[in-house]
Simulated scan of single mutants.
Amino acid sequence: MTEIRLVGTAHVSQKSVEEVRSAIEEFQPDIVGVELDRGRFISLTQETAEPSVAEILKGGNFGQLLVQWVLTYIQQRIGAETGVKPGAEMIAAIEEAEAHQKPVALIDRDIRITLARFWGKMGIWEKIKLVGALIYSLVSVEGEKIDVDEFTDQDVVSAAMEEFRKFSPRGAQALIDERDAYLAHQVLMLTGRYERVLVVVGAGHIQGVQRYLDAPEMLPPLPTLTAGVKSLPWAKIIGAAVTLLFLLLIAAIAFSGVGIDVLLTALLYWIVINGVLSAVFALAAGGHPLSAATAFAVSWLTSLNPLLAAGWFAAIVEAKIRKPAIGDFRQIIAAETFSEMRRIPLFRVVLVAALTNVGSTLGTITYFLFIFPILGVDPMVVITDGFSNMLQMILGLF
């Protein structure tokens, strides 16, 4: 029968590094499983090729990419405060296993799958709260004394996990519960080949993994933990709805009899409101005036096309001007302050893309909220008369 020992760690704790080394020395496992996937293992142990700017722009997941970078930055800052590099306990486990000539198993789910499922499962409100929390963390992490070793205490960990579940239930499911199950699957695969298995995972996974090891029949099928998130393409649906709503609004104004000047004003304000807010947010991201001008020029059109985004065009112009270089990606990960991060050309390009899209979205919402007060007409009269006149015209054709 295989003997399994779980070691819970904090990812930026010297105490965890020492505990991992001691556990391997004392337990003498036949294999050491570590909470890493191949990509993170390579990034921790050797130089890796960076994605090109073209690949990043083509991916288009600017918000998700920013969240990933900010989370990495926060972890780096905590690591700097404690003097321990993030992932040091995993490196210690690998080095200690190699010193004892024992194999190492990478038992975590691919980080790209985890992030995609994490982002895909969260609702819009959860994403907004997450961004707000990250912005707050960027400020509060500076100079704040954190006792990282507390996060290997199971009571503290359990309380933190419960708070995260309240904050983002679906995010917690992808980031914690699914990975508990995936890690347990991988550990159970090792039990048939080795008598003594030592597993090094974050303290937040200890209870979940142990629960599945005690009752393997409760494990969800492995393929369900790695498949893409199946959900309605809300961005495209909302984009199509905006396009339809705008066209119906313009048609109602055109057929209501309020005059061509009101119709032209409505069209003009669609361009101005979308353009101004997109440009303002591009500039707020530190974008070049030409990038802001591009955002202004295209946002009225991209807001009507669910397949396009103003941020893409602004980012292309920003990339031409800032000229991100090989090495920017690594500099972002290693940045010691958020101000330093913002000065890196690649980060600036992605930030401009993300915030321009936010500005364009707010422009569309603002337009529909305030267009009738701006025009000085009664919306019920315009809509009722407009559609009534359209219906009469259509009936007249037959």
Rank of each mutant, 00 (worst) to 15 (best):
D110V: 04
D110L: 01
I113W: 03
I113N: 02
T114C: 03
A116P: 01
A116N: 13
R117F: 14
R117N: 13
W119F: 15
W119D: 12
W119P: 00
G120R: 05
G120C: 07
K121W: 11
K121Q: 13
M122L: 07
W125G: 01
E126I: 11
K127P: 05
I128Q: 01
I128A: 04
L130T: 14
V131G: 01
V131P: 00
A133F: 10
I135Q: 04
S137R: 13
S137E: 11
S137W: 10
L138H: 01
L138K: 03
L138A: 09
V139K: 07
V139H: 04
S140N: 09
S140W: 06
S140I: 10
V141D: 03
V141K: 03
E142R: 11
E142G: 00
G143C: 11
G143D: 05
E144G: 00
E144P: 00
K145A: 10
I146H: 07
D149Q: 08
D149P: 09
F151N: 08
F151W: 13
T152D: 06
D153L: 09
Q154S: 11
Q154P: 15
V156H: 02
V157N: 05
V157Y: 07
S158Y: 08
S158T: 15
A159T: 06
A159M: 08
A160Y: 08
M161Q: 13
E162I: 06
E163C: 04
E163D: 15
F164V: 04
R165H: 11
R165S: 12
R165W: 09
K166S: 14
F167P: 05
S168A: 15
P169D: 08
P169G: 10
P169W: 09
P169Q: 07
R170N: 15
R170M: 14
R170I: 08
A172N: 04
Q173T: 09
Q173S: 10
L175Y: 15
D177E: 15
D177I: 13
D177T: 15
R179I: 03
R179F: 04
D180M: 08
D180S: 08
A181G: 12
Y182L: 04
A184I: 12
H185P: 11
H185Y: 11
H185I: 02
